[in-house]
Design a protein around this nucleic acid. Structure first.
Length: 369
DNA sequence: CATCCGTGGTG
DNA sequence: TCACCAAGGAT
């Protein structure tokens, strides 16, 4: 059963384009990635903005462009620096995929971001939204860039009641955008839809009285704007108990561990920690049992340093964190094999740590001050 | 298609 | 306090 978008038959698309783009031209925010149309800058900004607020992205984007001003320079950057640029932003596979894709662009396309849907869609981390965003914003191609904003805005304007949580629903909105998009200004049109969603047509109570396309909006006519979009999703987060320790040696160096290359927080660094799968032992004893089994050494742990609860999108960590020392020498081969390193306090700054471990270190420094 | 993948802001 | 969210993509 194919849903039909009835409102597409009656909407005045030319007038809609004009009202929307005129509003955007005068009311848009001055954001750093809007300084020019450099496809590389557009690309980086779109990846950063995935599931992430504008205010959060701005400082990261500015620093990223200082560190890696051009596509070529980013392609040559080393992995550790790349992860450091993303530290704290979350969804770290975004930047690993971006780095991989940029290297691909340099190698295959001479450093020029491709401008066709077929080529750009092949790049790692570039899905339907990002492909459309780069093509329309940087290259003026009439491609839809359907994100959460666009689905919310158009679900109201066109009275589309499909569940936007379902993957196939995006296709319905792509059809709508193709029917409405201004071929003379694809960049402003797509950005304006998103800007409208961010500033006026917001999730809770949209500011319809300020809306430049109010007269085109079916939901406003019916007074049902707050009921749209339809979105049903379930949420079941499991809680994972962990025990962690900030461990130092006689030189005052810290023991850190590089996480696996796949899965949660891939390739980032952490302090030694273990998931608790038995309640039989005291947490401190459990930690030492696991550490002994893994690295062949025993730590001397102090009192509990801090309890940390960290909420991810799909799970919760409960981490009991200790501080302690490892008084004995450790086998270099075992350390290397399991991706452990001793690093000085100064050198810790070179490594990318996810937020929960930053909290642990903050507590450690507070206590030892 | 459902699940995995971060973080900080908000009512 | 807590559910919901914010310019999604990979598997």
């Amino acid at each position: 059963m194919k849903e039909e978008i009835n409102a597409l038959k009656t909407i005045d698309s030319k007038q809609f384009q004009h009202d929307l783009i005129s509003w955007f031209a005068s009311e848009h925010r001055d954001l750093p990635w809007r300084e020019n149309k450099d496809p590389y800058r557009v690309w980086v900004s779109e990846i950063m903005l995935q599931q992430t607020r504008v205010d959060t992205v701005i400082p990261y984007f500015n620093r990223f462009m200082e560190w890696f001003p051009t596509l070529d320079e980013f392609a040559e950057a080393d992995e550790e620096r790349v992860l450091k640029a993303w530290e704290g932003l979350g969804y770290y596979s975004r930047v690993r995929n971006l780095h991989s894709a940029v290297k691909e662009v340099k190698a295959t396309y001479g450093g020029v971001v491709p401008d066709t849907p077929e080529e750009i869609a092949k790049l790692k981390g570039v899905g339907p939204y990002t492909a459309g965003a780069i093509l329309s914003i940087a290259y003026g191609k009439p491609e839809p860039a359907v994100d959460g904003n666009v689905m919310r805005v158009l679900s109201r304007i066109l009275l589309i009641r499909e569940d936007i949580a379902k993957p196939k629903t995006r296709k319905t909105f792509e059809v709508a955008v193709r029917a409405l998009i201004d071929h003379e200004n694809t960049s402003f049109f797509n950005q304006a839809l998103m800007e409208l969603g961010a500033l006026i047509c917001t999730p809770g109570k949209p500011a319809c009285l300020l809306c430049p396309v109010q007269e085109h909006c079916e939901a406003f006519k019916e007074g049902v704007q707050s009921e749209l979009p339809i979105k049903i999703q379930k949420k079941k987060t499991r809680t994972v108990p962990l025990v962690a320790a900030i461990l130092t040696n006689h030189k005052g160096e810290f023991l850190i561990h590089k996480r696996p290359s796949e899965g949660l927080l891939a390739n980032l660094w952490e302090f030694p920690n273990f998931e608790i799968h038995t309640g039989l032992l005291a947490k401190r004893d459990f930690f030492n049992q696991e550490l002994k089994e893994l690295l062949g050494v025993t730590s001397e742990l102090g009192e509990l340093l801090v309890k940390i609860e960290h909420v991810f999108s799909h799970l919760v960590w409960n981490v009991d964190t200790f501080s302690g020392v490892i008084p004995t020498e450790m086998d270099q081969n075992i350390m290397k094999k399991h991706q452990f390193q001793w690093v000085s306090e100064i050198d810790l700054e070179q490594y990318a740590f996810p937020v929960p471990y930053q909290k642990m270190m903050a507590a450690f420094k507070e206590k030892n001050m």
